[in-house]
Amino acid sequence: MKRAFLIWVVGLFTLVPYALWYLLFEAERSHYPFLITFIFAWVTGYYSVVLPMIAAWRVRKFFRFIQSASSADEIRKKFATPENREAFIVSIARENGVPLFLARRIFARIERGLLKEKAEYGS
């Protein structure tokens, strides 16, 4: 997320001013639509493209973590202590930009799913 914001800021202070200067002083009339669209898209539309990609990457990373665990018991052990639970809940909230109460509900569903799996397979 920080990298995406840094890229946006760098573009905002380098690409957008150059595109605006080029639009005002050097561009031919046929280049106007592209330059105007670029400026507006960079300022307002960047995050509408980047944020869904970041969210998909985070979900994929989380599911890779779950798949890489050798067993559900291993995942349960990582979340067994209250400190680890709270750290995981805070990381869900911080990384996804959701309130803590929502992150707690997400964690409860994950935990419920793990317990259900344990009951079904008798592990």
Rank of each mutant, 00 (worst) to 15 (best):
Arg29Pro: 02
Trp8Met: 13
Thr14Asp: 07
Ala56Ile: 05
Gly97Trp: 04
Leu24Ser: 12
Val49His: 05
Glu28Asn: 10
Phe65Tyr: 01
Arg58Phe: 10
Val90Ala: 10
Ser30Arg: 11
Ala108Asn: 05
Arg29Ser: 15
Val43Cys: 02
Leu114Val: 15
Leu6Val: 03
Ile7Glu: 05
Phe34Gly: 05
Pro52Gln: 00
Glu86Tyr: 01
Glu26Arg: 10
Ala108Ile: 07
Tyr121Thr: 15
Trp42Gln: 04
Trp8Ser: 01
Leu114Cys: 13
Ser70Asp: 05
Gly45Tyr: 05
Glu83Ala: 15
Lys78Arg: 13
Thr37Glu: 09
Pro82Ile: 01
Lys77Trp: 12
Glu74Ile: 14
Ala27His: 09
Trp42Glu: 01
Leu6His: 05
Leu115Arg: 10
Arg85Phe: 04
Arg109His: 06
Lys77Phe: 04
Thr44Val: 13
Leu23Met: 03
Val10Arg: 07
Phe38Thr: 14
Glu117Arg: 04
Phe34His: 02
Arg58Met: 05
Ser123Pro: 07
Ala80Val: 11
Gly45Thr: 03
Tyr18Gly: 08
Arg64Gln: 15
Leu6Ser: 12
Pro52Arg: 00
Phe63Gln: 07
Ala93Gln: 15
Ser71Cys: 14
Ala80Tyr: 07
His31Ala: 13
Ser48Ala: 09
Leu100Met: 09
Trp42Arg: 00
Leu114Ala: 14
Glu74Met: 12
Arg94Met: 06
Lys2Gly: 08
Phe40His: 09
Phe25Ile: 04
Ser30Trp: 09
Arg29Trp: 14
Arg29His: 04
Glu83Met: 11
Arg94Phe: 07
Pro33Asn: 10
Thr81Glu: 14
Phe13Trp: 10
Glu86Gly: 04
Lys78Val: 08
Phe25Gln: 13
Arg105Ala: 03
Ala72Gln: 07
Thr81Leu: 04
Lys116Asp: 13
Ile7Lys: 08
Val9Asn: 12
Gly122Thr: 04
Ala103Asn: 10
Arg104Val: 04
Ser71Ala: 00
Arg60Ile: 14
Asn96Gln: 06
Phe25Asn: 09
Val49Gly: 07
Ala69Met: 14
Leu6Gly: 08
Met53Asp: 10
Val98Glu: 07
Ile39Arg: 06
Leu12Arg: 09
Ala93Glu: 14
Gly97Arg: 01
Met53Ala: 15
Pro52Tyr: 00
Gly122Asp: 09
Ile39Ala: 01
Arg60Tyr: 06
Ile89Glu: 05
Val49Gln: 05
